[in-house]
């Protein structure tokens, strides 16, 4: 019990004294997961919208694959990204294994199916004739897609929350492709795992609290936007 109380005290000490290492880890976590979320939004919204608006042979299979991808285990993603980025791997020439870029790549792979799946469902849930109505208003195809995405913006915010929430808290892929290098590729989750392994529970608890606060604040801001937009 003392261990926990001491851990929490230490945590708040590290947080309020703005410990340089903890701050660095926190900022890197935000930067890596934020960038990965942006990449996944760009790809996920584009692919999700395209699949939602088109009819082609094998579409059902593609939708099933996207839905399966929403539950992709991070360690499996970490394994395959590591293999791809390995020196002799297909993308080995990029020489980005054990860098923050590799973590961004892995996290983007984890978040993209989540964003794609939610986008697909959001666009499909819009009224069937809305597409035709937009075209009847004189819209070009690009304008129509933009207006549909805009119309589905509330569920898409949920996609952002789900995507960011999924990757800020994942550890498997980050440790496998980032290497948890101190001051370079160490993020909140990998640092927590390491400190727990070393028995430094106070630091681990501090990092966990920061991680939870980070996830809470980002989601609180997005929820605020979502609720403000919602009709009352």
């Amino acid at each position: 019990m003392n261990l926990i109380i001491e851990g929490i005290q230490k945590a708040f000490f590290l947080i309020f004294t703005l410990d340089a290492e903890v701050l660095g880890i926190t900022l890197l976590s935000l930067q890596v997961s934020g960038t990965a979320t942006l990449i996944s939004l760009f790809i996920g919204i584009s692919v999700g919208t395209a699949v939602a608006l088109s009819r082609f042979p094998g579409r059902q299979l593609v939708v099933s694959l996207i839905n399966t991808g929403m539950g992709l285990p991070p360690v499996v993603v970490g394994l395959f990204v590591a293999i791809f980025l390995w020196r002799n791997g297909p993308l080995g020439f990029l020489e980005i294994l054990y860098t923050p870029t590799a973590i961004i790549l892995a996290q983007a792979v984890i978040a993209t199916p989540i964003v794609t799946g939610i986008t697909l469902a959001s666009i499909q849930n819009l009224p069937v004739n809305l597409r035709l109505q937009i075209l009847a208003l004189g819209a070009t195809r690009v304008q129509m897609v933009w207006l549909l995405v805009k119309e589905a913006r509330l569920p898409l915010l949920a996609a952002v929350m789900a995507g960011f929430g999924g990757i800020i808290s994942e550890v498997g892929a980050s440790i496998m492709v980032g290497g948890n290098i101190r001051g370079y590729s160490r993020v909140l989750t990998t640092a927590t795992v390491m400190e727990t392994g070393r028995g430094n529970f106070d630091v681990a608890i501090a990092l966990s609290i920061i991680l939870m606060l980070l996830a809470f604040f980002v989601n609180a801001i997005l929820t605020q936007i979502q609720q403000r937009e919602r009709p009352r």
């Binding site: 009224p127 004739n129 809305l130 009847a136 004189g138 819209a139 207006l147 119309e151 509330l154």
Partner: peptide
């Protein structure tokens, strides 16, 4: 042509 016409459906299909 679509910019010279208009269409109204049974459902109002308004934007949010």
């Amino acid at each position: 042509y679509r910019r010279r016409i208009a269409m109204v459906f049974q459902e109002p299909l308004l934007f949010d």
